[in-house]
Amino acid sequence: MAFGHKHILGIEPLSREDIFTILDTAEGFKEINSRDIKKVPTLRGRTIINAFFENSTRTRLSFEIAGKRLSADTVNISSSGSSVAKGETLEDTARNIEAMRPDIIVMRHGASGAPHYLAERLDCSVVNAGDGAHEHPSQALLDLFTMREKKGRLEGLEVAIVGDISHSRVARSNLYALNRVGANVRLAGPGTMLPPEVDRLGARVCNRIEEAIEGADVVMMLRIQLERQAKGGPLLPSLREYSRFYGLNPDKLTLAKPDAIVMHPGPMNRGVEISSSVADGSRNVILDQVENGVAVRMALLYLVAGGESEDKD
């Protein structure tokens, strides 16, 4: 019955049972976050290093709080102000970190596959907190946790994911996870933001947001990565046009089921992918996602700390 993974590198290597083990474990941890004394001694004496080589507020804070509530010692490093800024390679940085004997490294990195590279070379556990445009497993798991909490089930749910699918690690991890638990995914976004061979991802691809939202139980809006717009040549004619065709407003939301919930991984661009009235409306569970994120990350840290066998990948 023990969890068999030493690392959490993505959703792809996890089975349906693994996913449910994580969600069920998180249920047990959620209660701690509403106590007066929000701390249990589970990981006392363990050291967790949060190595964030890419900007993050929510995820880093969430992992840090999760570690602290389990009584682990958590230390944060970021690329600015560290030796990375002086030109040290990732492997050298990691080897130096490991020489200080941490038990878990939680890593975010701009390069897809960076956590996998480290997991192969280091003895400690590695938890992927987002790698490039590849995966963001803890986000997908907290999304599933929130869906199950609000809808009472995952199997058979109709989930619309709208936005920049090709650059979104949130979309990719959610797609793997939702497929594994038997939910049905519809994807929508401008053609420039859909990956090649998108039809092979196991989701229904819609050209219009209306088609994706219709009859959906869950509407997940992705952040338009404005920094990407500026860098690699524009993928959109204009934000206003994106907002008109792919932004979620109260009118479009009426197409979803009456009890549909609205999710967003944050940070939101209000008025671009989501209108303020939807973002603040009664159907949004955006802050529930943030709250559940702590419990889900506690579960991940707990499970990898006791995970015995090596992952193959």
Partner: peptide, 18 residues
């Protein structure tokens, strides 16, 4: 489960609710 003293030796057991 979260208060056990044998996490390293037994692996992560499922956590129940209090």
């Amino acid at each position: 489960t979260m208060y056990r003293d044998d996490l390293g030796s037994r692996g992560s057991l499922p956590v129940g609710k209090t």
